[in-house]
Design a protein around this nucleic acid. Structure first.
Lengths: 236, 236
DNA sequence: ACCGAGTCAAGAGCAGTGCTCTCGAATATG
DNA sequence: CATATTCGAGAGCACTGCTCTTGACTCGGT
């Protein structure tokens, strides 16, 4: 291809990035529902209609932001996990949880976009499921490795038996040959983690609990118990 | 007071109720962000400006819906708990959890209004905290009574000690003389419960898990373990 | 070098929103 | 009965997402 064509495509990519960047800035201050294509265009000094050349609808812009968000969160958790001693499963668990929380508290509106109430009339396209899995995959890998290493205190199903778990094949694959009980407990701690963080981000703790650092550390320890982690819990 | 005055006030109360009723209907189909004062007015056959005689702003309408929602949820959980043998703490815990979930799944948008991402520019007034506490108070009471009855397997703080918990006086009062560890674990299961339900309501489980009934029963059992409940888990 | 094809930004415009203000009419109060 | 208050309706403002048209620009092939 010629350089001239590349020039045009480069300009397009440049502007696309510029739009998503200022959109994310608006998102972080106004929230997802307050994000306005016109305001973004105004900020960039262009007509609102011009933005539609790059994003056919507001949903498409949101999708781009969501994918970016999932990837950023996934990367943060992956790095936190990689910084740990691979054999220190409790430490990895703790680090991963705090990574998710730190990421969420640093950009609450972005977290709300990923894990809060879905924006109305928005239907997540298939492109989002890959990046969405990313941060959860860290947890799944952690559980699988801990299980394989014998570092998980395995427990039976609750009594009486609630029946078999039926995760999707993709999820089942994430956990390798781990027993079903590990998958079930991983789901519990996964939701338990986001339940806490969501409550923090969405203000549900206001007037309930002020020192959330220490309380979260305890929560992570409780969740680790559910998962069956046997190690001790260190400081952050 | 004269009957005529009562007549006007009655008409006012009547119309206020009518507005909240159709607003709740719109909310349940369109979601909180899609709720439009004009659409509600249209549905009632009145001018949009007339609605402002009854609710000075959309936020005030939302506040009314939120208060109603918290009360309805609280009542549902209270009734579920009251239907159980008071000494069967595990059964009460299970029933309360399922009551929250059933309520949420039956009106996802209303649940999202209460526990999802806060609507932009909306600041919850003080009137909402009372009803908001209601359903959580059931859990607190359950934990307190179980603790007092010796039905709770008490555990120490995680190792090493993350320091004391510092809940607000109102929360601390809900738990009576229960040890701090019970409060900490109640917070864990409280957030863990809503974490799961929120993921269900917000579609986070789509493509991950299809049989959510059984999986939720397991989750409730896991949370009961955190709380230290010692009983066995029966069918619903 | 030029000319048609494709791309682009801009403006006007549509339908919708929350909200305010004003103006008659209905109602309650002295 | 007269006065004061309440009420519904309409017009209007500023904003939103989105569409369509118009004119300018750039690119690729002859």
């Amino acid at each position: 291809m010629k350089a001239s064509q590349t020039a045009r495509e480069r300009a397009r990519a440049e502007l696309t990035g510029e739009i998503t960047r200022t959109a994310r800035r608006h998102l972080s201050t106004e929230g997802a529902a307050g994000l306005s294509l016109r305001a973004v265009a105004r900020d960039l000094g262009m007509a609102s209609s011009a933005v539609y050349r790059y994003f056919p609808s507001k949903d498409d812009l949101l999708t781009a932001l969501i994918i970016d968000g999932y990837n950023a969160l996934g990367r943060a958790v992956e790095e936190a996990d990689a910084d740990c001693d691979p054999a220190d499963f409790t430490g990895r668990w703790r680090a991963s949880c705090h990574a998710v929380r730190d990421w969420a508290l640093a950009r609450p509106h972005e977290y709300a976009l990923l894990f809060g109430s879905p924006v109305p009339d928005y239907r997540a396209p298939q492109d989002t499921v890959g990046p969405a899995t990313r941060h959860s995959a860290v947890l799944a890998r952690l559980a699988t490795e801990a299980c394989r290493a014998g570092a998980l205190r395995l427990m039976g199903r609750p009594d009486p038996d609630p029946g078999p778990l039926d995760p999707s094949p993709a999820v089942r694959e994430l956990f390798g040959d781990s027993p079903e009980e590990v998958v079930a407990r991983a789901l519990s701690v996964w939701t338990g983690l986001h339940g806490w963080i969501g409550f923090e981000v969405f203000g549900q703790f206001d007037g309930v609990l002020e020192d959330r650092e220490g309380a979260f550390a305890r929560h992570v320890a409780h969740l680790g118990d559910i998962l069956g982690l046997t190690g001790r819990y260190g400081e952050r």
